[in-house]
Design a protein around this nucleic acid. Sequence first.
DNA 1: CTTACTGGTTAACAAAAGATAATTTCAGGA
DNA 2: TCCTGAAATTATCTTTTGTTAACCAGTAAG
Lengths: 202, 202
Amino acid sequence: MPAPNNVYQKLIQELTGIVPSAALAPLLQFITPVHLPPGALYIKEGDTHKKIAFIEKGLLRTYFIKDNGDEATLFLRWEGHTIASHDTIIYHRPSRFRYRALEPTTVFEIDYAKLEELLKIYPGLEAVRSHFLLKMLADTLRLVETFVLLTPEGRYQELINTRGTIVRRVPDKYIASILGVTPVSLSRIKKRMYNKGKRNPS
Amino acid sequence: MPAPNNVYQKLIQELTGIVPSAALAPLLQFITPVHLPPGALYIKEGDTHKKIAFIEKGLLRTYFIKDNGDEATLFLRWEGHTIASHDTIIYHRPSRFRYRALEPTTVFEIDYAKLEELLKIYPGLEAVRSHFLLKMLADTLRLVETFVLLTPEGRYQELINTRGTIVRRVPDKYIASILGVTPVSLSRIKKRMYNKGKRNPS
DNA sequence: CTTACTGGTTAACAAAAGATAATTTCAGGA
DNA sequence: TCCTGAAATTATCTTTTGTTAACCAGTAAG
């Protein structure tokens, strides 16, 4: 039984709007709170566990280790987001990615295999699955849009405008990675933006 | 009643594995085949219609008109893919994107609002929604991965390797756009790749 | 206080991409 | 066959990014 909290309450409220609480009860029973200290690995590559987790507090980074040893950060996800070991759930294969907490983080986890079992017994829960999938699809589509429509500089600008608080919570090198540029390049982008801002005071 | 076809048969087969055919029947009743000649606009920006469509044959391009008049192509989708007017379905707002057929195309369309009605009457159909959402999420995640993990040249290489037949069906300028580069730059990428290939015959 | 480590910035040069315009190729219509 | 228009390539120049390495600041450990 997770401790009540703003974000958690909001989640429950969302879900009760979707399925009758009679159907929700058995699901809530299998939700486990997991506490992660900063730097803790939540899912590591090779992991076959089908996890889906709602982030109640904190911030998680999903990343990949390239052949040359470099890391490439795919996502940053924080309070209110749902993360899933998508390799295991979608492709039924071991995860190629690592999921690591960047801050003290609490997630509410459910075993996706368990969820599938529950779905057989309580088909009413299927709407919950759709709900989470739609939210994750929305997040992912938004990400694709920024890649196709914006330059790295534009993406950073957008990130500052809409997710300023998050940017401040994360080291620049990870921000650079999700923008698709090197930390060196992000440093230059910031300098250019700063210079533009103070130029033309006439 | 859409005409039977390999791809359509495969879809039905997929769905019958998910929901009892008794639940599937009412859904199939509301599926309309839509034929699009090459160049036809399927969804235009500003459209509020909640459409979701299974591509039976042909190829569709989802694109955006930028402020400067330039087009930016978000997706190319072909046989077996599901496309959806995601602005209308996810955000309940008019579509910012155009969806246009590049070839003679047939889609099986369902009004998403109608689907939501049906879901109230036949909750068993909810699994169908999850199925499509999961497929679309998979497609979209794969796209994000290529952006984060690969350079434009790498993305093109990957596209040739895994989607060679599609690349041949689409003008290079649209391929360039989904890679996130200009047509001029794609032309140079191709030249570089060709030169690498024939270099070092020792 | 010194040391070691991490993250961020800067510098210098190479590689790639953007912008623009000219040129070539090619398919379809008159 | 010739003409036209769209798509692709090439050329030139500018801007941005990658790469590598040096340097600086903050922090934690000894």
